[in-house]
C-alpha cells in the first residue's frame, strides 16, 4: 500500500482530506434498512424460484449433522458391519445389565444424598422416589459411599443413586449399578421442580421409559444403565412417560403425562426437569482412587474436547 500512496501524492499534488464527512446517524440506519429489505426481497424471489423448479428441499447445516465421525458409531454401509453388530449383540448378552434386559429381576433402587442434605435436595430426592418405581430414600448420615454400597448390596438393592448439592442446589448424581458396577458420575444442572398443579397429577403408576439419541458405544452403555433403574413392565393405565433424551452429550430428563384426543397425542409436563452431563464411567463399584475408568473427562477435558463438533454419547 505504502508505495502506491507515495505515487498518488506526487501526482495529485495537494493532499485530500483524510476522512470524508461523517454521514448523519439517521441516514446510515435508513441505508441499512434499505439493504435489508432488498436482501429479503432477493431471498423471497429465490425461494419462489426454488419451489417452482421442484428441486428437493435443502437440509440446513447444524452441529448435529456435521458432527465428527466416531469410530464406535455403527453404520450399515461399513465394511465389517455384520461382524461388529454381531459382536455388539454378544457384548450386550453378557454385560452387567443382561439380567435386567432378559427380565430376570425387578430393580430395587436406593436413593441417598450427601452427608447432611438441605431442604431442596431432600425435596428433589422425594420427587425422584415418586417417579422411580420400587425405590426407597434414606439419609446415609456419616456413612461413606463405599459403606453405603456394601450395605445396599447386602439388602438386595440393584441400583444406588447419590445426589450431591452445592449451596442448596443439586449439582451431582452418582449412579451405581449393584452388585458389580459400573459406576457413573453425572453433573446435574438446571433442576426445575414441578409446581403445585403438576404435583397433584403424580400417581403411583410405573412410568414408561424412553431413552433416545444415544448412538456411540459409550452412549449405548449409559442408556442401558439409565434404563435399568426403572421397572421393565410399565403400567400403561397411568399414561406417564419418562424421557431421557441425549443432545450434544447433554441428557435431558423429562416427565410427561400423555393423552390421545381425536387420535392426536397431547403432552402435559409433570416435572421435574433436569439435565445430566456424564463426567466419568467407571468399571466396578465406586472407587475414585484405584478404580479403572471406561471413559473419563475430569482432569483432561481440554485433551478430549478438541472440537465443538465432537460428541461422545
Amino acid at each position: 500500500m505504502e508505495p502506491e500512496n507515495e505515487v498518488d501524492e506526487s501526482q495529485a499534488g495537494p493532499e485530500l482530506p483524510k476522512l470524508a464527512r461523517k454521514k448523519p446517524k439517521g441516514l446510515l440506519r435508513q441505508e441499512k434498512l434499505k439493504d435489508l429489505k432488498n436482501k429479503k426481497k432477493i431471498q423471497k424471489r429465490d425461494r419462489k424460484l426454488r419451489k417452482a423448479s421442484g428441486d428437493p428441499k435443502q437440509v440446513p447445516r447444524t452441529i448435529e449433522n456435521t458432527r465428527e465421525p466416531d469410530s464406535t458409531v455403527l453404520h450399515s454401509d461399513d465394511e465389517d458391519y455384520d461382524q461388529k453388530a454381531q459382536d455388539l449383540a454378544a457384548e450386550f448378552e453378557h454385560d452387567e445389565f443382561a439380567d435386567y434386559y432378559s427380565h430376570l429381576y425387578k430393580p430395587k433402587v436406593l436413593i441417598t444424598y450427601k452427608a447432611k442434605p438441605l431442604r431442596k435436595v431432600r425435596e428433589f430426592g422425594k420427587i425422584l422416589t415418586e417417579i422411580v418405581p420400587n425405590s426407597v430414600r434414606i439419609f446415609r448420615r456419616d456413612a461413606s459411599v463405599k459403606e453405603t454400597i456394601q450395605a445396599a448390596i447386602n439388602k438386595g438393592y440393584t441400583d444406588l443413586i447419590i445426589i450431591n448439592e452445592d449451596r442448596n442446589e443439586p449439582n451431582g448424581l452418582i449412579l451405581v449399578h449393584l452388585p458389580d458396577g459400573p459406576t457413573a458420575y453425572f453433573r446435574l444442572s438446571n433442576v426445575i421442580f414441578p409446581n403445585k398443579r403438576q404435583r397433584k397429577e403424580f400417581t403411583d403408576h410405573r412410568p414408561e421409559v424412553i431413552t433416545t439419541n444415544f448412538t456411540t458405544g459409550l452412549g449405548k452403555t449409559v442408556a442401558r444403565m439409565l434404563g435399568a433403574v426403572f421397572h421393565q413392565d410399565a403400567e400403561f393405565k397411568g399414561r406417564h412417560v419418562v424421557t431421557m433424551h441425549n443432545q450434544r452429550d447433554y441428557i435431558f430428563f423429562r416427565h410427561h403425562r400423555y393423552k390421545f384426543l381425536k387420535n392426536k397425542p397431547y403432552l402435559r409436563e409433570l416435572g421435574p426437569k433436569f439435565t445430566l452431563r456424564l463426567q466419568y464411567l467407571q468399571e466396578g463399584l465406586y472407587d475414585p482412587k484405584c478404580g479403572e475408568y471406561r471413559w473419563i473427562m475430569t482432569d483432561k477435558r481440554h485433551k478430549i474436547e478438541t472440537s465443538r463438533r465432537r460428541f461422545f454419547l
Binding site: 469410530s71 461388529k84 459382536d87 457384548e91 458405544g217 468399571e283 475408568y293 471406561r294
Partner: peptide, 25 residues
C-alpha cells in the same frame, strides 16, 4: 483399553499409528 479400542503407538516417535474399535470389552 476399556474404551473398546486396540491401539498401536510408534515407540520411538510416540505417535499413534493405528487404532480400531473392537466392540467388546
Amino acid at each position: 483399553s476399556l474404551d473398546c479400542h486396540v491401539r498401536l503407538h510408534n515407540f520411538s516417535s510416540g505417535k499413534l499409528t493405528m487404532q480400531d474399535y473392537i466392540v467388546g470389552k
